[in-house]
Structure formats: structure tokens, C-alpha cells
């Protein structure tokens, strides 16, 4: 046997780099194929006479959207209260307490409403998507769908995507509303502002584009959460242990990607609105 002249650690570094690069390339390929076929099945396929499963989409909307209403409104209510308190802490030094309304309104609609909703929905629904699809993959149910001539993407994933694309903006609106309510209640009880003045100030300070940019973000987050969840679910190989791992990975990855996309949109809107 010919002895290799390359020192072992160097060889290991090259080997490691190559392996990592190849597996990265492989996942990139899988992700792009998935994104491509999910969008094809959602937007193009209905034009060729294969409509999405409306009933299943409604079921998913109830699961991901309607059932999240209590937690989303509760959390954003508290965040509204906290924001108002923090703002008041600074603004009262300048005697500008009424501007609490501006701060709460704008930061909720532009930023916190969508991001809070996205984090909650990734935890609730992103993980559920990964677990559901992952356990179906492990039990060969996905293969069974394929052999029955049923496209698993159309059957399983499109309803989830439609549901989150509609429910994320809807939940975000609810979060905005309940956060502003939280701010109003705090301002009128502890800061001595009249609720009428607070609400009027909020309405005057908000431009339609503040709410609109928040909803655009929410829509994008909905797509990100669905795609990450189903991608991790489809990657399950083997049994229950892997399902657990992939579920965790789905939540972590979707929260990270949501923040990254948030940054991207915020920069975009900063320059173009």
C-alpha cells in the first residue's frame, strides 16, 4: 500500500470541508426542489384544473390560526402594556406622555405584531407540521400517498401553506389590535391619559403603510414557517427519535429565518416607503 504523503490533520480538514460542503449542496438542492414544487402546486396547478383541497385548508386554518387567537392576543396585550410602560419611563421626563401612543402603535404594527405572532406560530404550528409530516414519513404514509398516485405536496403541504398565508396576517392584525388595547388600558389607568385621546393619537400617528408593511412581513413569515416545518418533516429518516430532533430543528430554524427575513424587510421598507 502506498503511504499518503499528506499529514493526517490536513487530510482530515480537507475531508471535513468537502463533506460539509457536499451535504450543504445536497440540502440546498432538496430545499429548492421543495420550494419549487410547493409553489407550483399552490399557484400554478390550480390553473390547470387541479384545485387545492379547500376543506383541508380550512381545517388547517382552524388548527393554526383560530386556535392561536387566545395566546396571540394574550401575549401581545402584555407586550403592549410593557411597551407603554417602557415608553412612559422615558417620555415623562420630557412631559411628552401622549407620544406613548405613537411609540406603541408604530412599533407594534411595523415590528412586534408580526414577529411575536411568527414566533408563537413557529412554536405551535411549525413544530406541529414537522412532527406530523415526520411521523407520516417514518410510517411510510408519504410513500403510500405517492403509490396511490396522490401528490403528497398537494395533499398535505399546500393546505398548510394556504392556511398560514391567510392566518399569519390575520393573527398579526389581532396582535396589533390587542397590543394597542393593552397600551390604551395602561395609559388610561396608570399614566392618567384619557382613552379617547390615546386612541385618537394612535390613529393619527399610524399611516396605512405601517400596518401594511407589518402584514407583508406576516405573509412572508407564514411562508417561511410552513416551508421550514415541512422541509424538516420530510427529512425524517427512521423512527420517532428523528421526528423529535427534526421538530426541534424546525422551530429553531424557523425562528432564526423569521428574524433574518424581518431584517431584510425592515431594510427594504426603510428605503422604499
Amino acid at each position: 500500500m502506498k503511504v499518503s504523503t499528506m499529514p493526517l490533520p490536513v487530510k482530515e480538514i480537507f475531508g471535513y470541508t468537502g463533506k460539509t460542503f457536499l451535504s450543504l449542496l445536497d440540502s440546498l438542492n432538496t430545499i429548492s426542489v421543495l420550494i419549487n414544487s410547493v409553489f407550483y402546486q399552490t399557484f400554478i396547478s390550480p390553473l390547470t384544473g387541479r384545485p387545492p383541497r379547500i376543506r383541508a385548508s380550512i381545517v388547517e386554518m382552524v388548527r393554526t390560526g383560530y386556535n392561536s387567537v387566545p395566546i396571540v392576543s394574550l401575549i401581545s396585550f402584555f407586550v403592549g402594556v410593557i411597551l407603554a410602560l417602557q415608553a412612559a419611563y422615558q417620555l415623562k421626563k420630557f412631559g411628552a406622555l401622549i407620544y406613548v401612543a405613537d411609540l406603541v402603535g408604530i412599533s407594534l404594527t411595523r415590528e412586534l405584531g408580526p414577529i411575536l405572532t411568527a414566533v408563537l406560530v413557529s412554536g405551535r404550528s411549525g413544530s406541529a407540521f414537522a412532527a406530523e409530516i415526520g411521523s407520516m414519513k417514518a410510517a411510510e404514509e408519504i410513500d403510500a400517498l405517492v403509490t396511490m398516485g396522490i401528490n403528497p405536496i398537494r395533499y398535505l403541504i399546500v393546505p398548510k401553506l394556504i392556511a398560514l398565508m391567510i392566518m399569519m396576517p390575520a393573527l398579526t392584525l389581532i396582535a396589533d389590535f390587542s397590543g394597542i388595547t393593552g397600551g390604551t388600558i395602561l395609559a388610561s389607568t396608570m399614566l392618567g391619559l384619557s382613552p379617547g385621546a390615546y386612541i385618537e393619537q394612535t390613529i393619527n400617528s399610524l399611516a396605512i403603510q405601517d400596518i401594511f408593511t407589518g402584514l407583508v412581513k406576516a405573509l412572508a413569515f407564514g411562508i417561511v414557517i410552513t416551508l421550514v416545518g415541512v422541509y424538516q418533516g420530510l427529512r425524517v429518516e427512521g423512527g420517532a427519535e428523528d421526528v423529535g430532533k427534526r421538530t426541534t430543528a424546525a422551530v429553531v430554524a424557523s425562528i432564526i429565518l423569521v428574524i433574518v427575513f424581518d431584517l431584510f424587510f425592515t431594510i427594504l421598507f426603510f428605503f422604499f416607503t
Binding site: E140, E141, L145, T147, M148, G149
Partner: peptide, 30 residues
């Protein structure tokens, strides 16, 4: 695929559907 049927090792029935709905699935889809 419409002309072939497959039984998987673990049967691979969809757990979210009843037995009837599982059997009806290929018919309703095709």
C-alpha cells in the same frame, strides 16, 4: 399507479383518517 395497489410493511394507513376514509382516498382523488 392507478392500475397498481401497494400494501406497505406497516400498512401505512393514514392515521388521521378512519379506515373507510383510507379506503375511499384513492377513489375520491382519482
Amino acid at each position: 399507479r392507478k392500475k397498481m395497489g401497494v400494501l406497505f410493511q406497516g400498512a401505512a394507513l393514514l392515521n388521521s383518517l378512519t379506515v373507510s376514509d383510507n379506503v375511499a382516498l384513492p377513489v375520491t382523488e382519482h
